[in-house]
Design a protein around this nucleic acid. Structure first.
Length: 490
RNA sequence: GGCGGCGUAGCCAAGUGGUAAGGCAAGGGUCUGCAAAACCCUAAUACCUCGGUUCGAUUCCGAGCGCCGCCUCCA
């Protein structure tokens, strides 16, 4: 398996420190607002990477931070006139809700900054003891120039940075490049006691401490958006390696950003859409497909049109699954007998075994999800072809095998795991809809089409779409207009 | 200015030293009481420009143009 390593700017063979085990860290949210659809990208793609590693037999331990003390949280609290802790609590909860809606698996360990303060203080003390940090009036800074490899990840040199001169001059720092490990408390801010006085941790520090205290001094994979490379990840390397004397991360992975109207989507630019709203509108699988149909290291442009296209693409697969289950229901399933297969059947058999292989080889190549999805869709076309041309009973097991393969390969992607059609819904509303459908079916049998059509139209106006298939009628909530993607959500 | 990335058909997007997956859209057909949907087929003479290496480059090298990111909080 190959991974592109930001540190070396090359694709490298992936060899975890400990055979069969992967220690992985993905930068988590600062909980001051709902995350936007661009923020969702690393969460989704690295969720897929994690699942794929598991699919390939690795035991993965994933850690992710929750930054629940920070300037932005404090600002939000001030502007809303509530406690910073309340802001953090509210958006931490929202974060987990949004993950769940997007079907992103939770990390194995999810530390909060505020619960890791003692380890942070200990970490800072170690840096001071080693001469890598200094205290000035209750602020503790990291001595960037003392760390000789500074700039390795981002390809910058300290002299370059100095001449860039965009670093604010701060009299308390020995050098403008130094960054804060511990910030002295200002009145009214959340703070904790420390050897340097009341204060709170700096942002870069949190990740290092949480990562190393959970996963050990050396991580296999550390992931996040490209905009974190500098200074955040650069600083993490410096302080971690200075403190532990060990290599901090073996493989750095960075996703490119989401663009909107020609620029990166970002909170500060104000050109964003909340992930929860997009998920609600297009369905979680459309969002996943949207991201996975591109390589994670290229920028993507967001548009509602692209989201709608993604939803259609996902639906194409579900329609096939639906059709296969319907075929399988209607006939007893014979065992696979290769001798009885038509030419088409034999071709399909070959396609099945080839698809898994090609899928894996794409995914093994720096997680080429776009190529892998292409393979899946080729299989979809072959299966459709097989169904649309006179289906032979001997080929039914092949369709079943195709369905299973789509579900198997979809699993690491977090796609195509849902029920193919709307299950009988619990609750009065679902049952009433089922009842109307049943009445309408009776009418159709009696050829009372006028009334049957009336029911369909009236339901449509209420946001319930019906589709007549061979023997049954499928329904969903408003996929026709702009409603949610029921099938993808099932 | 420094560092990094990108430029493939109408749109989106893989990939390859020997004329190039897939998705969406479009056109044609099949199916259906009707609707909607679905399925199949189809092409388009798709690889930013200019040089170079090569028997041969979209794929390698160089230059240029354009777009984007980082250099400040940011996924």
């Amino acid at each position: 398996m190959k991974l592109y390593n930001t540190l070396t700017r090359k694709s490298e063979e992936f060899v975890p420190l400990e055979p069969g085990r992967v220690k992985m860290y993905v930068c988590g949210p600062t909980v001051y607002d709902y995350f936007h659809i661009g923020n969702a990208r690393p969460f989704i793609v690295f969720d897929v990477f994690r699942r794929y590693l598991e699919y390939r037999g690795y035991r993965v331990t994933l850690a992710q931070n929750i930054t629940d003390v920070d300037d932005k949280i404090i600002n939000k609290a001030t502007s809303e006139g509530i406690a910073a802790q309340e802001v953090a609590r509210r958006y931490t909860e929202a974060y987990f809700e949004d993950l769940e809606r997007l079907d992103i698996h939770r990390a194995d360990v999810q530390p909060r900054a505020t619960e890791t303060i003692p380890q942070m203080i200990e970490f800072i003390q170690r840096l001071i003891d080693k001469g890598y940090a200094y205290d000035h009036d209750g602020n503790v800074y990291f001595r960037v120039r003392k760390f000789k490899n500074y700039g390795q990840l981002s390809g910058k040199s300290v002299d370059q940075l100095k001449s860039g001169a965009r670093v604010a001059v701060d009299e308390r720092k020995e050098d403008p490049l130094d960054f804060a490990l511990w910030k002295a408390a200002k009145p009214g801010e959340p703070s904790w006691p420390s050897p340097w006085g009341e204060g709170r941790p700096g942002w870069h520090l949190e990740c290092s401490v949480m990562a190393t205290s959970i996963l050990g001094d050396t991580l296999d994979i550390h992931a996040g958006g490209t905009d974190l490379i500098f200074p955040h990840h650069e600083n993490e390397i410096a302080q971690s390696e200075a403190a532990t004397g060990q290599r901090f991360v073996r493989y750095w992975m960075h996703n490119e950003l989401l663009h909107f109207e020609g620029e990166k989507m970002s909170k500060s630019l104000g050109n964003f859409e909340y992930a929860r709203e997009i998920t609600e509108r297009y369905g979680p699988e459309a969002v996943r497909y949207f991201y996975l149909a591109k390589h994670y290291r290229t920028p993507i442009s967001f548009s509602h049109r692209a989201m709608a296209e993604a939803r259609r693409a996902v639906e194409r697969v579900y329609r096939l699954l639906e059709e296969i289950e319907s075929q399988a229901q209607s006939a007893a399933e014979p065992e696979l007998n290769e001798a009885q297969l038509s030419e088409r059947g034999r071709a399909l058999l070959g396609k099945l075994s080839q698809t898994r292989e090609a899928f894996i080889s794409h995914m093994d190549d720096d997680f080429n999800t776009a190529g892998a999805l292409g393979q899946l869709f080729e299989l979809v076309r072959e299966l459709n072809l097989c169904i649309s041309e006179d289906l032979q009973p001997a080929e039914l097991p092949l369709l079943r095998a195709g369905e299973q393969l789509i579900r198997e390969l979809g699993r690491p992607l977090g796609l195509f795991q849902g029920a193919p059609w709307q299950e009988v819904q619990e609750g009065l509303q679902g049952e009433l809809i089922e009842l109307l459908i049943e009445v309408r079916s009776q009418l159709r049998i009696k050829r009372e089409y006028q009334l049957a059509d009336e029911i369909r139209q009236r339901l449509s106006r209420l946001g319930v779409e019906l589709k007549d298939q061979d023997r049954r009628t499928l329904w969903s909530y408003g996929t026709a207009s702009q409603g949610s993607d029921e099938r993808a959500r099932a």
